[in-house]
Amino acid sequence: MKPLRMRKNSYPGPGGMLACSFLLHVALLAIVVTFRLYPEAHPLAEETYYVDMVSLPVASPAKGTPAPTATTQQPAAPQAAPEPPRPAPQSPAPAKAAPPASRPSMTYPTAKTKPTTSKQKQVQSDETAPTGAEAKAFQDRMAKLERQAEDRRQADVLARLRKGTGGKKGAPTGSGTQAGSDYAAYIHSRLKDAFVDTIASQTKSPQVTVRLVIGPDGRIAQYKVENSSGDKMFEDAVDRAVHVAERSFRKPPGGTPFEQGFVFRPQGVGLK
């Protein structure tokens, strides 16, 4: 237990060694957790965030698609979202449906932890109806979500009517305390709508990462390109999308600036 005879003076003893080791490990863990230094090649690609269309807070979007699903050509109405035939409402909800049901509100942490299988199913359901028990579970869950969303929508509409702001279709309805997620989804859908009409590129798999800060007035206070694959046409297309989308932005809830990063890329590129 004396590996470093030469430096006996500075050897802190077994206790010290242990302390050092412990400290190092804690520091390392902290670094890894804080900075998300997981050894993944493309963490951004993996962390793609999907929201069930039915769970969107936007009641009837002013225009275009409300949700960041895999396909953008989906009709706007939430009812028309994933295609599986509506199941009988009273079919017993299996355990799988529990997480979404117990989800408090559409905040990001919850959404992020959503299993990716759900996303796959959603994509799959666009083309072919899922089969078997899995499909049934999925349909049940969808039905439940839809019911919830419908309830929430009606409550929202009523609340808005009471407040006399019913005319603002598609406006986010979050209060100051729950700022962020609803508004983020709202901005996201605006960007997505705009991007469909501006996308252009001259390279095979372009990608641009931007960070937006939306000021309390609902205007873009900061537009920062954090990373780009170097395709000028694609960068310009993103720029156009942001500017077009900005015209329909509402003020962020709570009167505080809203900051969010976005990764722009062509559909089907960079995803595994």
């Binding site: 900075f35 998300r36 996308i199 252009a200 900051e259 969010q260 722009f264 062509p266």
Partner: peptide, 20 residues
């Protein structure tokens, strides 16, 4: 790492069909 962000603020992905 420059791509640090808050835990509740992952980058949102914005995609569109590329054949435009």
């Amino acid at each position: 790492p420059p791509k640090t962000f808050a835990d509740d603020q992952p980058y949102l992905e914005v995609t569109a069909p590329a054949n435009r």
